[in-house]
Amino acid sequence: MTARDLILGRLRAALAAPAPPPAEVHRDYRPAGAVAADLDVLVDRLTDYRATVHRCADADVARVVGEVLGGRRVVVPPGLPPHWLPPGVTAVTDDGLDAARIAAVDGVVTAAAVAVAETGTIVLDGGPDQGRRVVTLLPDVHVCVLRADQVVATVPDALARLDPCRPLTWISGPSATSDIELDRVEGVHGPRNLHVVLTAGPGGG
């Protein structure tokens, strides 16, 4: 008998007598679409968890990136809009760079897939403008450019928009720990600096 058959047999025996009554799930909590996204709430929550938020027009993203990362070396995913990078920043495109190479740069600039206002969370799904998971992990500064139409109100809204088959990274502020006396301190293994650039989107100026 395989372990699989053994375990499944045990579980079926455990449920045999008496069989548990069927459970109906009432989803009377706020479902996807119940609440409108509020950008000010997103900014407030991001800031509360020590992310730095910049609000600007899409055309001004390069200027903000320059202010944060000017004179430093960054890695960028292959699909990043080129006009987001200022002349003063040296950008290496990730075409399968090894981890040590990525760890050696100062920062990373990406887009995002979705953001959750209520929890101050940005979600990356590995799209061409966000890149492999490793590029947003090893550099110490992450600049994430977010369009207003990517912001949703709640966690149910975000899950409804995301594709579970893609590798997903939900990011709420910089790397942190509560492991010393349950006191939250920012800055452990992931990027210690998270900058979110919130724009109205390419059409919105």
Binding site: Y49, G96, T119, R132, C165, P167, L168, S172, S175
Partner: peptide, 21 residues
């Protein structure tokens, strides 16, 4: 758990993603 609105990182993956991870 930690008394946070959301923990700093949540990772989700489905099997293997070619070229990533």
């Amino acid at each position: 758990s930690t008394g946070e609105r959301m923990n700093p990182y949540t990772s989700m993956w489905t099997g293997v993603t070619p070229g990533d991870g």
